[in-house]
Design a protein around this nucleic acid. Structure first.
Lengths: 354, 354
DNA sequence: CTGAAAGCGCTAACAC
DNA sequence: GTGTTAGCGCTTTCAG
């Protein structure tokens, strides 16, 4: 029976002490050429695998991960990311990994800057961040690099920052999925609208990616008769927004709408409902309370779930596994594009959280 | 700074020894009422959380989990469950949990019986099983109960066996989801067929559950003009099968087909393709190679993913967590009903495995 | 350069 | 009933 080989065993086989074995294992300290080679040989031959449990206990290190995310109380979507971090705090506590959230104001880049300062001052061993302010985040990540603090980003990527890992979805594909769901069984002529409904400061590349995928889908169909309309709408002045939406909805050829921001869906839904427009298909994002209501009523036909809660949780997990066990983490970790309907909704809500 | 509380600390605070604390923690051995209460009090007050790393290292136990599953080489679907077990083997090895698969012949109940004997002889600490032979499985689980070996079932449930945990999907809901996908944007009059295509021995309650959900969905629509047809077809005699399918497909009112078994879809697909019947919507199960091909070609419109790979992996995880850390495991762990289309397929295939 | 030895937090055998 | 103690496998300090 191949009982597990311990450092002690390989020391014995190589005729050296455990100290020396440890030194070659971690290339720390000086080891004579002879000893080094002997140990390496035994290591190979036995196929030694370190006991990671013992390793973390022995080193008795405790790690600190900072999570730089939007204030969960400001927004339901970001509330879910807060939940993911909370879950991670509990999960990793017992492994000696302390996770602390740093909340910034969703609408205030200055707050992002001050919070990110605080993160750096706290001197974390790893950072999870939702880089929703692109430029500020990029600057922040520069500093992380120079201080050699590994960081993972989720929700949206900042590729040039070269994070340890990006966790999120393929937004281009997301746009294509949405287009497909609108297209399903529709015949030309028809107009499909993609609406970006956001407040002043949050117009991100995020949204353009979805739009590209969306348009690409319809382009590839090459019956020219499908028309696609893209609209940027401002969330902050409601009357204007409503006017623009009303105008859009009055077009008789309009057969489907995609709302790219999770919060934007409810206003579109409520207007469609009031007007009894149940021939217009509506696709939106995320399992927000309002969205679920409209999905159940049949106003929203499909939701695409971005699962930001799980994203945040996974992000912390990546960092912890890296720090604790030195595990490789995938450079990009893409979540599946989950399609939610009235009928499978329940199964997602009750689905346990690994 | 709230440095982590160790057993030593709480022993000190309670004025007892670590041995006593350990005894109340694990309710092993005798402890005086007074000591018990004192310790409990300190435990509560300090919010003590054991260091699981140290626990597993200290106890130095090694657990053995047997996985009783169909031979992965016989069938692509069950091949995926084999992969899940394989993944679990690697995952848990480092925690001192040995997982060993026991493969039985998918088409031979006798083989199930002999393999389950072997499982018992191996004297495992926990069992994961795919109870596809209902009666035989029920008998086997009786023995498990009498020997007090905890077992988890996945894929399909055997509720009367009262497993530690069932891992799978809500099949009733699954049928409803399928119905919805067929119904989408179809107007009456229309005929929808639900096909159970299986070989002799595998007609299970499994399939009837899906059928109930399917019919329920259409009943609830209460436009009487949707017709539903349910057909049991035998996989083993292909010419007969093809005849029956041909007859079905010739009905002009047929607008959609659900195939409830993952393997059954390819034959239906190939026939639809040959006949150029692209107005008949097809919904099927699972990411089998053939199914993916037909999905990409647009013959299959939707796949519902049962994710049996992840089910098996999760099942082992439940047992391991229970044995190692004494974690509570949910009595039923339902997986989401994942809807796969041509456009989001890629995101599922590349989605990393936690 | 190398070995010995003291931990890490917890378990479990053993003595009283 | 209770306390003591020797591990678990690895890290890390400290002599030499």
């Amino acid at each position: 029976m191949n009982k597990n080989i311990r450092i002690k065993d390989i020391a014995q086989l190589a005729g050296v002490s455990v100290g020396t074995v440890d030194r070659v294992l971690h290339s720390r300290g000086q080891v004579s050429r002879a000893a080094y080679e002997k140990v390496m040989e035994v290591l190979e031959k036995t196929g030694y695998k370190p006991n990671l449990i013992a390793r973390t206990l022995g080193s008795n290190k405790t790690y600190f991960i900072a999570a730089l995310i939007p204030d969960p109380s400001q927004d339901e979507y970001w509330g879910m990311s807060g939940q993911g971090v909370q879950h991670a705090i509990e999960e990793w506590e017992q492994y000696g990994v302390r996770v602390e959230p740093f909340f910034f104001d969703l609408y205030d880049t200055a707050s992002f800057r001050t919070r990110s300062e605080m993160v750096l001052d706290a001197n974390p061993d790893g950072i999870l961040a939702a880089p929703i302010f692109h430029e500020e985040a990029a600057r922040f990540f520069e500093v992380c690099h120079s201080r050699e603090i590994p960081f993972v980003v989720f929700n949206n990527n900042v590729p040039e920052a070269r994070p340890l890992s990006f966790i999120g979805q393929d937004l281009h594909q997301s746009g294509r999925v949405a287009a497909e769901l609108l297209h399903l069984n529709r015949h030309p002529p028809a107009l499909f609208a993609i609406l970006h409904i956001y407040d002043d400061i949050h117009r991100s590349t995020h949204l353009s990616e979805k739009e590209k995928g969306f348009k690409e889908y319809f382009d590839n169909l090459n019956h020219g008769q499908f028309q696609v309309l893209s609209l940027d709408l401002n969330y902050t002045h409601e009357p204007t927004l409503k006017n623009e939406l009303a105008e859009l909805m009055s077009r008789p050829d309009l057969k489907g709408i995609l709302v790219t921001t999770s919060r934007g869906a409810s206003i579109v839904s409520s207007m469609l409902e009031k007007r009894g427009k149940d021939d217009i298909r509506l696709v939106a994002y995320d399992l927000l309370k309002q969205n679920l209501n409209y999905l159940k009523k049949g106003i929203i036909d499909f939701l695409i779930n971005q699962n930001v809660r799980q994203q945040a949780f996974t992000g912390v997990g990546q960092l912890a596994n890296r720090l604790l066990f030195n595990k490789k983490v995938p450079q990009t970790y893409l979540f599946p594009l989950e399609i939610i309907t009235r009928q499978n909704l329940e199964s997602y809500l009750s689905a346990n959280f690994h």
